[in-house]
């Protein structure tokens, strides 16, 4: 698969249809996000699999946004998995990226990764190489729903109280880009002390991500306290789906129900 990906990138770069490609590289014995440009050696390109597949994923769309903000007129390629593509659709919708300035280079995820992520759609619409696996049901959410209210409540409060307020969940998130972050709004979350205000901090973020989170799981992987954030956001996404029939990033052109005024639309 990787050879096909390299070929594709090489094609894009040498024909000049993109200025650069955001992907991953192996350097200094580690995996890092990287911008490949014309003439760069593609030998060190990698897909972010080290010990397990997808265990060294990075928020490449975030990197793309950083670069595109400085170079708004250029077209860039970007390596995407299913979640990254959902992210691109979301970022188009939220006016953070322009669709005609982005060339996604899609790869599907293997079954093991799809299982670990409990991913609804472990492949992008456009695939350069590799074999698709179908989506997986949200067992984690269901299991949690089956517990009684007080068990759930104390589970989450215990988890939240481990928070060390690193803001890593926000900083790593490819869908977080607000200049003024609600987590830093003192009317919502008090500052200056640990443990952070719970559950306000975590629920504020969950609400704010409700129509944006594309379930990539990077936040949970970045959490130093191993708080199961992804599960929380999966549940939020499920509510969005049952109430509004909306799933972030699944349809390229769908508007978010949260950006519409008035009563909830008919299901």
């Amino acid at each position: 698969m990787i050879d096909r990906v390299k070929e594709k990138i090489n094609e894009l770069l040498s024909e000049g249809s993109v200025k650069g490609v955001v992907a991953l590289v192996t350097a200094n014995g580690h995996v890092a996000p990287c911008l490949f440009q014309k003439g760069d050696d593609l030998d060190t390109l990698c897909l972010g699999d080290t010990e397990k597949s997808g265990d060294a994923r990075y928020p490449l769309n975030r990197v793309l946004c950083t670069i595109a903000r400085q170079y708004p007129d250029d077209v860039f390629g970007v390596l995407v998995r299913g979640c990254d593509e959902r992210g691109l659709y979301g970022l188009y919708r939220l006016n953070q990226l322009e669709p005609d300035k982005v060339v996604p280079i899609g790869i599907p995820c293997p079954e093991s990764l799809a299982q670990a992520c409990e991913c609804k759609k472990p492949y992008p619409d456009d695939i350069v190489a590799g074999e698709k696996f179908e989506g997986i049901s949200q067992q984690g959410v269901e299991d949690m729903d089956n517990k009684d209210l007080s068990t759930r409540f104390s589970f989450w409060m215990d988890q939240f109280s481990k928070c060390v307020k690193c803001y890593g969940c926000r900083n790593i998130c490819p869908m977080c880009f607000c200049r003024e972050c609600s987590l830093e709004c003192e009317d919502l979350v008090s500052k200056g002390d640990l443990p952070v205000d719970i559950p306000v901090f975590h629920l504020t973020r969950a609400m704010h991500m409700a129509d944006r989170c594309i379930d990539c799981g990077l936040c949970e992987e970045a959490c130093p306290s191993d708080i199961p954030l992804r599960l929380l956001y999966k549940k939020t996404a499920e509510i969005m789906n049952t109430e509004f029939g909306f799933t972030s990033g699944i349809n390229k052109n769908e508007k978010s129900p949260l950006s519409l005024m008035g009563p909830a639309p008919e299901k």
Partner: peptide, 27 residues
Amino acid sequence: FLESLDGKLTGTIPCKTSPVNEGKLCI
């Protein structure tokens, strides 16, 4: 990783494959 664009630092990205912090950082 210290992330830089044209000589300006733009961010910090925790290293996932580091055995020390496994992709996590403090504030």
